[in-house]
Amino acid sequence: MVQVARALAAALGALVALLAALSLVVPLDTVAWVAGLAGGLLVTASVAHAAPGVLGPADLVTLTRALLACVVAALVAQGVLGDQVTPLLVTVAATALALDAVDGRVARATGTQTGFGARFDGEADAFLLLVLSVPVAQEHGAWVLLVGLARYAFWGAGVVAPWLRAPLPRRDWRKVVTAVQGIALVVAASGVLPTVPTDAALLVALGLLAESFGRDVVWLARHRAGAHAGALGGRRLPVP
Rank of each mutant, 00 (worst) to 15 (best):
Leu55Asp: 06
Ser46Asp: 14
Leu42Pro: 05
Arg236Tyr: 01
Leu55His: 04
Val76Gln: 10
Ala137His: 03
Ala74Asp: 04
Thr62Ala: 08
Ala161Asn: 12
Val71Tyr: 01
Leu18Asn: 13
Arg171Glu: 07
Lys175Glu: 04
Leu209His: 02
Val31Asp: 01
Asp172Ala: 15
Ala77Glu: 03
Thr91Ser: 14
Gly214Arg: 10
Val43Ser: 01
Ala69Trp: 00
Val204Asp: 01
Gly234Phe: 13
Val61Lys: 09
Leu193Glu: 03
Pro87Trp: 03
Ala69Cys: 07
Leu55Met: 08
Ala157Val: 05
Val106Gln: 05
Ala21Lys: 05
Ala10Trp: 08
Arg236Trp: 05
Phe127Asn: 03
Gly233Lys: 07
Pro52Thr: 11
Arg108Ser: 07
Val134Gln: 03
Val34Asn: 02
Val136Lys: 11
Gly40Tyr: 00
Asp29Ser: 14
Asp216Leu: 13
Leu146Ile: 15
Ser23Arg: 11
Gly53Phe: 02
Trp219Ser: 03
Glu139Ser: 15
Ala32Asp: 01
Ala157Glu: 02
Val218Leu: 14
Thr91Lys: 12
Thr195Phe: 08
Ala96His: 04
Leu128Trp: 02
Val92Tyr: 03
Asp59Met: 12
Leu149His: 01
Val90Gly: 00
Trp143Pro: 01
Asp172Asn: 15
His140Cys: 11
Ala184Gln: 02
Gly207Met: 07
Arg222Ser: 08
Leu145Trp: 01
Thr62Ser: 13
Trp173Tyr: 07
